[in-house]
C-alpha cells in the first residue's frame, strides 16, 4: 500500500533511468528526486525526452533501465504496483484526451466510480466541487465537443483531480491551445500549485515557470542538462554540461526566446 504520511520518502525518485525506442536512446541516465509539494517545470526542445520522462512515471512508457520510485512504491513489472501508482498520479495531456462519448460530468465521475468504487452521489459531489474549482460548473452536462479548447483542458484537469491524486503530471498542457485560451488553463494550474500539490509540468510557458516552479529542468538529447531554481535558471547562462558547448547554446537560446514570449502571454501572472 502506498504510504501517505511518510515524510522522509520523496514523492518521486528516479535513478539512472534509461529508455530505448528500438535502438534510439531516448533517455540517458536520468536522476531526479521530487519532494512532496514541490513544483518542477521541465523544458527543452522537442524530441529532448521530456514527455517520455514524465510518461515513464505512470508507465505510459515502459523504462528499460534504472529505477522509478513513486510515493515509496517502485514501478516495476508488478501489475499491482502499476495500478496503485496510476491511482495516485494524475495526468493532463497536450490534446486533453477527454472521452467524447461522455458528458463533462461523466468524464469526471467515471474513474472514481469504477476505479475507486465510490457511490455515484459521492463521486458526483466531488466532481462538481472540482468543476467549480476549474471555473466551469455550468458546463457539467455538455459534451466535450461543445466546449472550447481551454474549457476542455480545464475539464481534463478536473477529471484528473477527481481521483484525488498526490502527484499531478502535465504534458505540455497549453501547447495545443489557441493563445487567448492559454491563460485560463495556467490560472487553474497556479491555483493548484498554491494549494500544495506536487506537480511536474512539461511546458514552454516560462512565465508560469518563474511564478510557480521550485526548480526548472532543462533537457536535451535525453539528458537533464541543467537543474536550478527559476531565478538562477533564468539569470545564469551556465549549464551543468559545460563541456558540451553546442548544447549550452541551445539552452541559452531557449531561455532568451522564452524571455521574449513571457510578457506577451503572461502579463497577468506578473501583476
Amino acid at each position: 500500500m502506498i504510504s501517505t504520511n511518510s515524510t522522509g520518502e520523496p514523492a518521486l525518485r528516479i535513478e539512472n533511468l534509461d529508455k530505448y525506442y528500438g535502438t534510439f536512446h531516448a533517455l540517458r541516465g536520468i536522476n531526479l528526486s521530487v519532494k512532496r509539494g514541490e513544483k518542477i517545470v521541465v523544458c527543452g526542445p522537442s524530441g529532448s525526452g521530456k514527455s517520455t520522462m514524465i510518461r515513464c512515471i505512470n508507465r505510459l512508457e515502459q523504462h528499460n533501465g534504472g529505477r522509478i520510485v513513486v510515493l515509496g512504491t517502485e514501478l516495476n513489472d508488478d501489475v499491482g504496483n502499476i495500478d496503485e501508482i496510476r491511482r495516485e498520479v494524475g495526468m493532463v495531456f497536450q490534446h486533453f484526451n477527454l472521452f467524447p462519448h461522455m458528458t463533462v460530468l461523466e468524464n469526471c465521475v467515471i474513474s472514481s466510480m469504477i476505479v475507486r468504487k465510490q457511490p455515484r452521489a459521492q463521486a458526483e459531489a466531488t466532481a462538481r466541487r472540482y468543476l467549480e474549482k476549474v471555473r466551469i460548473p455550468e458546463q457539467a452536462l455538455k459534451y466535450p465537443s461543445q466546449l472550447s479548447g481551454g474549457q476542455q483542458q480545464r475539464v481534463a484537469i478536473a477529471r484528473a483531480l477527481c481521483m484525488q491524486p498526490q502527484i499531478m503530471l502535465f504534458d505540455e498542457p497549453t501547447s495545443a491551445l489557441d493563445p487567448e485560451m492559454v491563460s485560463e488553463v495556467l490560472d487553474v494550474m497556479v491555483t493548484l500549485a498554491s494549494e500544495g500539490m506536487t506537480m511536474i509540468c512539461v511546458t514552454h510557458e516560462m512565465g508560469f515557470a518563474r511564478r510557480v516552479a521550485d526548480r526548472v529542468l532543462f533537457m536535451d538529447g535525453g539528458e537533464i542538462l541543467e537543474e536550478a531554481p527559476p531565478d538562477e535558471f533564468f539569470t545564469s547562462s551556465a549549464t551543468s554540461a559545460p563541456d558540451n558547448s553546442c548544447r549550452r547554446c541551445w539552452a541559452i537560446d531557449w531561455k532568451q526566446r522564452s524571455e521574449c514570449v513571457t510578457p506577451h502571454a503572461f502579463r497577468h501572472l506578473h501583476d
Binding site: R86, H95, N97, F99, H101, S111, V115, R159, L169
Partner: peptide, 24 residues
C-alpha cells in the same frame, strides 16, 4: 490518447475496453 487517458486514470484493461474503447 483515449486509452492513455484511461490508463492514467488507473482503469484496468477491461474497464478501459468496455467504458472507453468499445463505445467509441
Amino acid at each position: 490518447g483515449q486509452e492513455e487517458a484511461a490508463m492514467a486514470l488507473g482503469m484496468r484493461y477491461w474497464q478501459r475496453i468496455s467504458r472507453i474503447l468499445l463505445p467509441q
